[in-house]
Amino acid sequence: MLALNNIEVVYDGVILVLRGVSLTAEEGRITTLLGANGAGKTTTLKAISGLLHAERGEVTKGSVELDGVRLDRLQPHEVVKRGIVQVFEGRRTFENLTVEENLVAGAHTRHDLGEIRAGIERTYATFPVLKERRQHIAGYLSGGEQQMLVIGRALMSNPKVILLDEPSLGLAPMIVEEIFGVVRRLKEEQKLTVLLVEQNAALALAIADHGYVMENGRIVLEGPAEALRQNSDIKEFYLGLNESGTRKSYRDTKHYRRRKRWLS
């Protein structure tokens, strides 16, 4: 179980970005973190993966723990060794490397060549299109293929927890469906723990077990995904549905009501 206990994140020593975030991602379940731009979702992920250090950010209060072991003082490569891997938003492949080299680089923390080989084959079985493209330069793949590659690459480290940052961004609905299908399968078959950051709330709540809503660096709402789907605020502001559950037009919403703030 991955747990964040009341963490505070400060950038450059002065800019307070997270103001006491607590959340847990249960083992073998999909937990989603929703929220608008700038709410602090990505910062939360970086606080877990240790990448804040490289951006002059720091966890100043609280703790990040995986199965009771503290992670928030570790360098990113040590966090990966302990079984947590982050997939950035925007499909960040190693664009000058081939597909297969990307996967090899993803297995950097592992040493058994046989296992790495097997991992590559497993990734190809999960995403057959990558096998066809194995010698292609990653920068020239299609968007969907790149998203599959970065997820496959992250899995090469054999993680317990995967942090996915907006995997649906800018992809065709069919591709998104395929990728989310794979994420669900990984959870069910390999008991992978998933922390999914999304702006597309409908999509995220459809596959998640549990959800959190963030705003202004705080968690403002949490609950089982089913309950969040029924929540009238979520329906209105994230799913674009009205009380009776039918799709509603944003033209009908009064302008000042379009965004609700739980906290001012």
Binding site: S49, L51, A54, P76, H77, V80, K81, V85, Q86, V87, F88, R92, T93, F94, A105, G106, H108, T109, R153, A154, S157
Partner: peptide, 8 residues
């Protein structure tokens, strides 16, 4: 940055 995230 990505290399770091991959445990390098």
């Amino acid at each position: 940055q990505v290399a770091m995230a991959m445990g390098i």
